[in-house]
Design a protein around this nucleic acid. Structure first.
Length: 305
DNA sequence: TTCCGACAGTGGGGTCGCAAT
DNA sequence: ATTGCGACCCCACTATCGGAA
């Protein structure tokens, strides 16, 4: 079951709030042994040896949760990434020691021979808390007390990704995205300067695939901060294509990013707004989305860092 | 008639492994 | 030896269509 993107419920009654953890979604099948299955149905058990102690369990159960690497108390997806694709057993052991993870459990789907997906969320949570999974590397995701608006503001101040609001009476809908679970994100946004574009493929092969965007650094030099390839309507794409074709030039107007291939560089004249989840360690926009052109000059751009 | 959910198709950052160069 | 690409992880979004409301 996946959360649908949205805004806070207008009325808190009937809803439960949890932190939105930025990690890897996994279902844990706990019996004599542990099996961790990713969202795409892959068996990812071997990559997370520190979670093996969840097993054995009698009766067996199935829980849903998020594999999270906490860095300074906050979930860090970047800390998780070097561990995700690792298949070398010794490397896995070393990484598990230096960057241990916590399995944050938020739902109970099955216990013994009894499926629980048709119970309400509240009932499933009560059963989950009763079986008492608690250990050095796993815990139950707390249900947050308070009004949604206050909790969202607190999550923003703590630098968290956002909240998930869950209907107390909601069934578990396997494999489906439903507003019974609504994720409310603390979105960031910034003004950026368009410095080039890359042609698209498929049904966008005759227009823009993505825009290269930049912001001024403290010294006033233009620094490439990533590529934005979503958020456009067909109309916006056609409009940008015309405008940028008129601004085409041969040399990059930025001090970095020159290694990117297949770029049509342009004069740094168009300013737009981009929303994103966070800056990566490399200073690149993560999950960037185009929000439209802004009618200001590049000199007026004040990046939100 | 309108709206919602599901799906397909496009794009992003990052990492690893393997094939092609 | 280097480069490119696909496969996974995370993700947002547009456009379309059929069925529910």
């Amino acid at each position: 079951m996946l959360a649908a993107p949205g805004t806070l419920p207008s009325d808190d009654t009937g809803w439960s709030y949890e932190v939105k953890y930025d990690g890897i979604r996994a279902a844990a099948y706990v019996s004599d042994t542990l099996r961790l299955i990713s969202r795409n149905g892959n068996d990812i058990t071997a990559a997370w040896p520190e979670l093996a102690g969840l097993a054995p369990a009698d009766p067996p159960f199935v829980v849903d949760g998020e594999i999270v690497a906490f860095v300074d108390g906050r979930p860090s997806f970047e800390a998780l990434q070097p561990r995700m694709h690792q298949r070398n057993r010794r490397a896995i052991t070393a990484l598990a020691a230096t960057t241990p993870v916590t399995f944050v459990i938020f739902d109970l789907l099955h216990i013994g021979d009894r499926p629980l997906v048709d119970l309400s969320y509240l009932q499933r949570r009560e059963l989950l808390e009763r079986i008492g999974v608690q250990g050095s590397h796993w815990r139950v995701s707390p249900r947050l007390a308070g009004a949604g608006a206050d909790l969202l503001e607190m999550s923003r101040q703590l630098g968290l990704e956002g909240l998930v609001a869950k209907r107390l009476d909601g069934r578990y809908l396997p494999g489906r995205r439903s507003p019974l679970w609504t994720k409310v994100k603390n979105a960031l946004s910034t003004e950026v300067i368009v410095v080039g574009w890359r042609p698209g493929t498929g049904n966008r092969s005759r227009t823009i695939g993505s825009l290269l965007v930049a912001v001024p650094d403290p010294a006033g030099r233009l620094v490439w901060v990533g590529n934005v390839g979503t958020g456009f309507t067909r109309l916006a794409l056609a409009d940008l294509h015309i405008k940028l074709t008129a601004l085409q030039r041969d040399t990059p107007p930025v001090v970095n990013g020159t290694g990117i291939t297949g770029v049509v560089w342009t004069a740094a004249e168009l300013v737009g707004e981009v929303s994103f989840t966070e800056w990566t360690r490399e200073g690149i926009l993560r999950h960037p989305v185009w929000r439209g052109l802004r009618d200001i000059t590049p000199a007026q751009v004040t990046p939100r860092l």
